[in-house]
């Protein structure tokens, strides 16, 4: 019953955050600040993880190919497919649920605890629009982060392949180009947009509706990470079933 109530409240929150919009001059600054916090601030960790996980995918693929009849190009092909279809959009989004999600929950939760949200409401400001809408717009730039993860993942794979001596650069690049289906990119970015929506709204929900003090802010951040990850995994399954099967 509690879960149903929370799901209902979540969807009501989504409706409410589009009502009574904040003045554009103020909103513009909030959006830019959130782009800086959520998107630009995540680029470092995303680049680091993407590069090395790309390398690991390549090494593991190469080490599992022990049949001499299987062409070396397969390493590049498998790396590309893993990174474009799953690693960059899904795996990276789960990492972002930890980084961006906890930041959103704890910052909004702290505002709730310190009555800053009440202060906004008393002033007649739609606090949901003021706090959550800019995050939603900022997260519309999330596919940019995922594009960088895709690019660096493949570069990481290429480097691991060359310097690990698993295949030549030519073989790897040939593999990257083999049987390329552009719809896979579309599929990856459709998922990314859905994940971006989830990453902005579920942590906001947990921060906005939390009750209690500092300890509860910490608990809300953990709960938000769990539920954001669950939502990402479920959406990933449904999107894959609907778009690729």
């Amino acid at each position: 019953m509690k879960y149903l109530h929370n799901i209902g409240t979540y969807f009501l929150m989504i409706i409410e955050l589009f009502r009574k919009p904040t003045k554009w001059s103020v909103m513009k600054e909030l959006i830019l600040k959130d782009i800086d916090d959520l998107i630009i601030g995540s680029l470092g960790i995303v680049a680091f993880i993407a590069f090395f996980v790309g390398g690991v995918v390549t090494i593991q693929t190469a080490l599992n190919i022990d049949n001499p009849l299987i062409p070396k190009e397969l390493i590049g092909f498998a790396t590309r497919q893993s990174i474009l279809l799953e690693f960059a959009p899904t795996f990276m989004s789960i990492i972002m649920a930890g980084k961006v999600g906890s930041f959103i929950t704890s910052s909004i939760g702290t505002m709730r605890v310190t009555e800053q949200i009440d202060a906004l409401e008393v002033m007649g400001i739609n606090s949901l629009n003021y706090l959550v809408f800019p995050k939603l717009i900022a997260m519309a730039f999330y596919p940019f982060v995922i594009s960088i993860a895709m690019f660096l993942g493949i570069i990481g794979g290429l480097m691991a392949c060359i310097y690990g001596g698993y295949a030549s650069a030519d073989d790897f690049i040939t593999g990257l180009q083999q049987e390329f289906n552009p719809f896979h990119i579309t599929y990856a970015f459709i998922k990314t947009f859905l994940f971006a929506f989830v990453l902005a709204t579920i942590p906001s929900f947990h921060g906005y509706y939390m009750k209690g003090g500092a300890l509860e802010v910490g608990k809300a951040s953990t709960t938000s990470f769990v539920w954001t990850s669950v939502a990402i995994i479920l959406i990933n399954y449904l999107a894959t079933q609907l778009l690729l099967s």
Binding site: M111, T114, Q116, D118, E121, M123, G124
Partner: peptide, 19 residues
């Protein structure tokens, strides 16, 4: 209600200043 709230000033117990 929104117009009315704009006529209200509130001092919260913990000040509630925006960090």
């Amino acid at each position: 209600k929104r117009d009315m709230r704009a006529k209200i000033g509130m001092v919260f117990q913990g000040s509630a200043l925006f960090d």
